[in-house]
Amino acid sequence: MRHIALALLLILAGPGCALIEGAAPARTEPEPSPSAAERARAEVLYREGVRALNPPRGGTPDPDRAARLIAEAAHLGNADAQMLLAASHLYRPDGSRDTAAAIPWLERAAMQGHDEAQYRLARLIEAGDGTRREPAWAAVWFQRAAERGSSEAQFALGLMQIVGAGTTRDEAEALARLRLAERGGVAAATRYREALRRRVDPATAEAAWTRVQRERARGPVPAIDRPLVRFVQSVLAGTAFDPGPVDGQDGPRTRAALAAFAQREAIAGASPYAPAMIERLRAQAR
């Protein structure tokens, strides 16, 4: 059910549909994880909602009931329902869209590890569509989606790494990502991969290929992950504080650079990857 049919999205986005009014609550701190009971209840509601739209043969679709059920599932923490709710704001029958309303739902689904939500969120952040334009922060979400199997995200991140847009330039790693994107069916990746292959040393390319293939993630986004560490290293690499290689590996050198940055910015008492620290680094990257 991850890849939602366009017809389903258009039904959910129809005039008067309850999903259009399903605003995500504003949050200033991470959302608490749903309890096991809430997850189970949300899954039941989501499935009932989809069934209301696609009833067994002979049944009559009930879009309004589906909208209510899916909205309730989204509020209880179902990532697929949250993605649907976001899509109802992004894809409307009249061609209009409300990206600002969609983004909070994309963020909630993305934090739970929904790769499509992560990719869509990255696209909006990269373009500054409904939110501040932040290529460096978009790269974080592209990598998270890529590590969870999104070929489109691998392609997008690879292109960013070719030119060093939003992240440190790394042609060998970009080549590896383009190879994975091509394997995943992204036709446009072939042209870029063939052009880039001639510029990358074969041994370096093979090492990057081995490394990128191992970068796999599942489930909710942890407090510290490779994409976040890589973001921190990329930003700090452009300052006076040397974090070491931009490889997504958290270590003493990166921590020391973070501590020095925190001292310069007068961020007292914050842990190295605390939200206040990340926000300041995001501001640094803009």
Rank of each mutant, 00 (worst) to 15 (best):
A189T: 04
L180P: 00
R179P: 13
G166H: 02
L196P: 00
R198N: 12
T168M: 09
G166L: 02
G164V: 09
A181F: 02
E182K: 04
L180D: 03
Y192V: 10
T167D: 05
A188E: 14
L178E: 03
L175P: 03
T168W: 01
A195G: 10
G185S: 12
A165W: 10
G184I: 10
R198Q: 13
V186K: 11
R169C: 07
T190L: 14
R197I: 11
G185P: 08
D170L: 08
G164K: 00
R179F: 03
V186D: 06
G184C: 12
A195T: 12
R193G: 03
E182R: 09
E182Y: 07
D170S: 07
L175K: 00
A189C: 14
E173T: 04
R177F: 02
R179E: 11
R177M: 12
G166S: 07
R177G: 09
A172H: 01
R179T: 07
T167Q: 03
G166Q: 05
T190H: 15
E173P: 12
G185N: 14
T168C: 05
R183V: 04
A165Y: 13
G185I: 10
G164M: 07
V186C: 09
G184Y: 10
A187E: 13
A188P: 09
A165S: 15
A181Q: 01
D170N: 12
R193C: 00
A174W: 05
G184D: 12
L196G: 04
L175R: 04
D170P: 09
A172C: 07
A189R: 02
L180M: 12
A176I: 00
E194Q: 11
E182I: 00
G184W: 05
A165G: 10
L175H: 07
R179Y: 08
L196A: 01
R177K: 15
G164L: 03
